[in-house]
Design a protein around this nucleic acid. Structure first.
Lengths: 217, 217, 217, 217
DNA sequence: CATGAATGAGACTTCATTCAT
DNA sequence: TATGAATGAAGTCTCATTCAT
């Protein structure tokens, strides 16, 4: 909490050479993410990734053993970013239902502001089962909290989770396809909350509550 | 026979030779659909399609000009099947909200009973924007009817549509991944109806109403 | 016996298409053998094989699943040729010792006359353990016969076999490297027979006995 | 130090820094030899050599100009070791025939005790013509001595040499492949001596004569 | 029309070699 | 000198597409 950003991998000594190495690796993954915004996972050639990252084709193999490992790393990176983003939302908000509302809205807002990112997310989530369950894990806590608070009254946890994630992703896809509407984030959040058993009034109120500080993410 | 007939759809008169031609074409598409159940669209080799359809690889090019045309044809075929399936549900049901409940439930039930089909649907819908709007069209009518009946009270049509489709597909994906639960169809339908603005009581009732006759689809 | 050349693989119906297929396959293997004469097994690129066989690179994969399978097929083909060659020698010769003498001499003579072939043989035998034992099998019979006849008196069969094969191959390598001498075949055969326990006189006589008819092989 | 010293062998005065240099170079060659025990020459990657020698890949190029130079150096190193080994055998033995018997046996025994070494030898000898003639040189003296002594009576020197080397290597390969038998060394030596013209009795006696002191090599 | 052999572009991957640190 | 990241040529393999039969 005092010192932020301790990367969650590599407990190796952060010697000098490691910095460049990490930068290149990051560059590769970022390049891949940018490409995922435009093409299906399976259609991306590593040569394109290399080109996008401005390295030679062989360089990729200094960091990943195979194409699959690249894809996996991209999934992991996005999932990590996800967790951080979600964690950010929760800071200082103690209601599960509200955290859900905030999360849904912020993901949709970000999708509207950064359709490339959203496109990549939609594709990776479709492609990568591991990422789906990773997301589920993060959401689960809030869902349960919302129920404990008596705001949400869904019957089956797994289904509620599915619905929450599916709808948010669906809205993100809408954004990607340029079909976002005014107050899209609030409207979707409200509907989801109602689906999860919140009363109409409460759903509306939760969905329209002011968002916390920085529109980071 | 007299005039070289290169119609790109099938408005041709069903002369004698055309029967077999159509059968082979259909066989190819069905084979492709079966493969979509297991692999991502981009990962399917035409050679596999040919093998699955029990024809030689070259034969495909007597029916399609290119790989893309095959994929497109598969999308069209599935969309057509969809239309029919959805139309079937509506037969003899005059409430929009009920038609929605029935539609959601039957798609989920079918996904549970036929995960291969569901898998193909999920993939094609993800892949093919045209299919998404085609589905939307079919649902739209019911959605409006539901609103006119006063049962549904959603604010924004496009978003409601998105949610309805996203959630149903999400549930189908659950089925594909073996995560379906008891009464999955009813539970999801109920939540969707609530999201669309139905009262909790009504949503529950609609979702648990007996399904019409043959579980064809 | 009445009808010669029944290929030992593919009991498939010898339809028309199969002929061409078999011809291409043969062409590929022959091309590979020609290259083995010049380069080490591991240094041969399939592209070179394709070029030598005058087909496109991809064609190879219509016949072999991988590079290793190509190499294996070459080994098998050479081993088959070997067996036939050795069998030819034995025709009409009823003494094991004499058959050995004939075999050794003919292999050396062929090596002298066709150094490319010999070079390929030396390399493949070095590379391919399977081929070594295959050769051993063919020789074993003659060795035993020679012992039963009382001409050979070696103590340990496996070692005798080893020596026989090693020396013949060594002489073939000499031929490849242009170090063959006058009466090379007889001299080597004589020494081998002595090593195997034949008396000096008998070894000499056996080694210098006239060779049977056609210098085929 | 004053004059840039780029001698390509090692005639340089053993100044201080040169000790370590030579050690590293030696380490690289030894590493390569160890790898030759397991893989064909052409299949060894310099990266593996570097790893085996526990240096970075780039370091190799401080000692060798190219991959080929590494391979060549390995050949030279093994040949040198050979020379020494063979020389050791001859110490204090004044009969050529006996020196041959001893040499053959010790090489086979070492192959049995150190199959990795034998494997490397077999491969390098197969690969490197220079090594073959180097070996030949060492053996030649003994062969001639054996003839002068009246024990060996071969007709053609080069062929005798070939046979001697081929058979010994063949036996070493047997050892590598785990096919060595009891008294392998004696049996092979005996057969070789007979091939070279020794009488059966003498061959046996020579082959079974006690070996000199240290089984170094 | 059906077949399947042939094609060749393009993807993945390895590895000898260079070079900045 | 040692290091190891970066490079890019070259090799293996796949697959959409063509075409003679």
């Amino acid at each position: 909490m005092s010192r932020a950003n301790t990367s969650n991998l590599e407990p190796a000594p952060p010697s000098r050479g490691h910095k460049k190495r990490e930068r290149t690796r990051r560059g590769l993954i970022d390049a891949a993410v940018r490409l995922f915004a435009r093409k299906e996972v399976g259609e991306i050639a590593l040569l394109d990734v290399a080109h996008e990252a401005e390295v030679a084709s062989g360089t990729i193999y200094n960091y990943f053993r195979s194409r699959d490992e690249v894809v996996e790393a991209v999934g992991l990176a996005m999932a990590d970013e996800f967790s951080e983003a979600i964690a950010q939302h929760s800071v200082g908000v103690d209601s599960g239902a509200r955290r859900i509302a905030i999360g849904v809205r912020m993901f949709i807002l970000r999708a509207i502001n950064d359709p490339d990112w959203a496109s990549a997310v939609v594709r990776v989530v479709h492609f990568d089962q591991a990422m789906r369950s990773k997301i589920a894990n993060y959401v689960l806590t809030d869902l349960r909290a919302g129920k404990d608070e008596g705001v949400l009254t869904y019957e089956h946890e797994a289904i509620a989770l599915d619905l929450l994630v599916s709808c948010t992703l669906g809205a993100m896809r809408s954004a990607v396809e340029g079909r976002s509407v005014d107050e899209h984030d609030m409207l979707v959040a409200e509907m989801i909350l109602k689906a999860l058993g919140a009363t109409a009034t409460r759903a509306r109120k939760l969905a329209r509550h002011e968002l916390p500080g920085q529109p980071t993410l």
